[in-house]
Nucleic acid binder design. Structure first.
Lengths: 212, 212
DNA sequence: CTTCCTTGGAGAGTGTCACTATCCAATCAT
DNA sequence: ATGATTGGATAGTGACACTCTCCAAGGAAG
């Protein structure tokens, strides 16, 4: 398959594909001659994943590159690779270390994880992006004057635990290996908007039930 | 309080506050003289909310303006206002109408809502942003070759329903009125990163339990 | 009073980042 | 042979959230 066909079948404009190639989000095609390269189904698949990460996951190009590098790194054990890929995924704004609200948030988060018995959640040694994400979110709420204590967060954490079970069930449908890692990344990222959308719909439904 | 003090207490640079004033994200201060204006606690509160919407919610300025306009619109009934504010909130990429994957996604979403009995979820007349968000997310997964049928989505929808109950419980702690609408907006937006972060942490925990 | 500093406001400029337009020489199709 | 197409490199575009610079009108210190 040539660049033009890759573009047609993926719906991504040719210059954009060239850009992704340049940024090493997409591996180069198999060179046929000095001016032609051949692309396979793997490229098509990878290209769609890239688009999903960038457009749906709103991920910066540099971050997407890291995630994809982890997905493809054959030198790692699949389980480790999965961890590395998901580890690289998001990370909004970093928690502001100078802010007392951040300290409060950190204590709340730690208490919550303690109560849930999530010992691996903070990551090994340094703190995981997910942990920082939670802390920074709580800190923002504290700053705005919303209480946001452990009791308030618990139902959210319990729902998150259910979600994780559903996630892992889906991931286990795939063969261990690159395919599974790719599925994990895709499902983690792509279910986010779906989940948030469903939450909004459920809110509307619940709101109507109570006040309607 | 003068602009300088507002800036110090909020941590937002003066030029940025001026920018928000220009963009009508922040109501103008009470003019004391031709060159001076006084700002109150309400301004500080609003300013922090603006930052939260833009930086945490990654919301474009224009969208934030709409949301805030709905929050402040005294001519509307609080319940309607709440709906209007949340309605305006985000909405990543629009579903691509020309794509067969979008049709599949729409059917899946409709079947899911049918099965759940969520009748208000699609919005009145036109489709709600949340519904479009869900459709576009499902379509992306279909395009990537992930099955994503009703059975697969159901556990997510059930968790979303639990989340909505928790959300509405929190919102009901506040007095009906602007305060409540503001709380609803803040909680909807600010709990998103927390929720997604908790999901990642729970995934790590669950993954460790299964493969660790 | 006068001199200096600060204030709020307005317009233009900056940085970032994902993408796109333009060229170019080599090569393929006819 | 010859015109179109390909992949690759370089530079440009557009959107957007700020941020800089200037200005005239007040206020404050001497």
């Amino acid at each position: 398959m040539r660049l033009a066909e890759l573009s047609e079948r993926s719906g991504v404009p040719i210059p954009t594909i060239k850009y992704y190639l340049r940024e090493r989000l997409l591996p180069p095609g198999h060179r046929i001659s000095a001016t032609q390269a051949e692309y396979g189904e793997g490229h098509l698949r990878r290209l769609r994943l890239v688009r999903a990460l960038i457009q749906v996951g709103r991920m910066p190009v540099a971050t997407a590159r890291e995630v994809l590098a982890a997905v493809t790194d054959d030198s790692l054990d699949p389980h480790v690779r999965l961890g590395a890929a998901v580890w690289a995924i998001p990370h909004g704004p970093e928690p502001d270390g100078d802010d007392p609200a951040t300290d409060t948030a950190r204590r709340t988060a730690d208490a919550l994880l303690e109560q849930l018995g999530w010992r691996f959640a903070q990551g090994t040694g340094e703190q995981s992006p997910a942990y920082r994400m939670v802390v920074s979110g709580i800190a923002t709420m504290v700053r705005l004057g919303y209480p946001c204590d452990v009791g308030q967060l618990l139902p959210y954490a319990r729902s998150a635990a259910e979600l994780a079970v559903a996630d892992l069930d889906l991931v286990e449908r795939y063969e261990r290996g690159e395919e599974q890692v790719e599925a994990a990344v895709a499902l983690t990222v792509l279910y986010e908007p779906v989940l948030l959308g469903l939450r909004r719909l459920a809110q509307a439904e619940e709101s109507n039930r109570r006040f309607g």
